[in-house]
Nucleic acid binder design. Sequence first.
DNA 1: ATTTTACCTCTACATTTGTAGAATTAAATT
DNA 2: AATTTAATTCTACAAATGTAGAGGTAAAAT
Lengths: 123, 123
Amino acid sequence: MKLSKTEEQLMQHLWKLQKAFMKDILEQYDEPKPATTTIATLLKRMTDKGYVSYTTFGKSREYYPLIKKEDYFSNHLNGLIKNFFNDSASQFASFFTKETNLSDTELKELRKIIDQQLKDNNQ
Amino acid sequence: MKLSKTEEQLMQHLWKLQKAFMKDILEQYDEPKPATTTIATLLKRMTDKGYVSYTTFGKSREYYPLIKKEDYFSNHLNGLIKNFFNDSASQFASFFTKETNLSDTELKELRKIIDQQLKDNNQ
DNA sequence: ATTTTACCTCTACATTTGTAGAATTAAATT
DNA sequence: AATTTAATTCTACAAATGTAGAGGTAAAAT
């Protein structure tokens, strides 16, 4: 089952912290912070969905993500691509480079990555 | 207001068809097709949200999207990037080229686009 | 003209999501 | 030891979402 928007946001914090107690999580939020119980509810739901687990330390828990950000995102992206670009990553890539305003430096960086990829592919 | 997953799917059909009567839309769906009333409900909600409009033809309507797929997607993508890559499109780009398995041809195509972009940027 | 079909509106209802109070408990502080 | 604090579970509830039946009507087919 997928995470909702708000749950995803919480995941971001967990990914960042790796391991976190309730208070660490709360700290991550900007003012006005959500109620502790709100976070608790979200964490429980996320645990049920299989995205989060925790180690019990005395009365409280240290939460951690069960899925890597990269993996989660990868799926996400594939869904997006499938949905919007008939499953064609290259079509997406072209769209992407046109639509996002990358600076020259960023474009060059990206080209470097591509060249590296090409090299890797061919030996 | 954003579209939900199912509404987005319907949008895809509208984007594809440009203009569509109920039956044209229904046709787009695979078996088992949703009930007409389901689509009708979605269309009404989407109209309320400002994503869809229609021309009345006698008793029925020809629906059409009010937002271009590119624009919708662009926003979408920016949200994603902001969320997952601290607002850094280049970080995203690098992730993207690594994670999606683009073929050599696709990579080369992409590089061409980048070069073009670079040229355009520097006029 | 009568029946069938297509499509619209209204209503409904279960599920998911966003948010949080109340009650409880264990740990920390005074 | 008594009180305060932090965290958990339970319960709640409104809004959004997915799905569709009932009922009505205009257009099309017989």
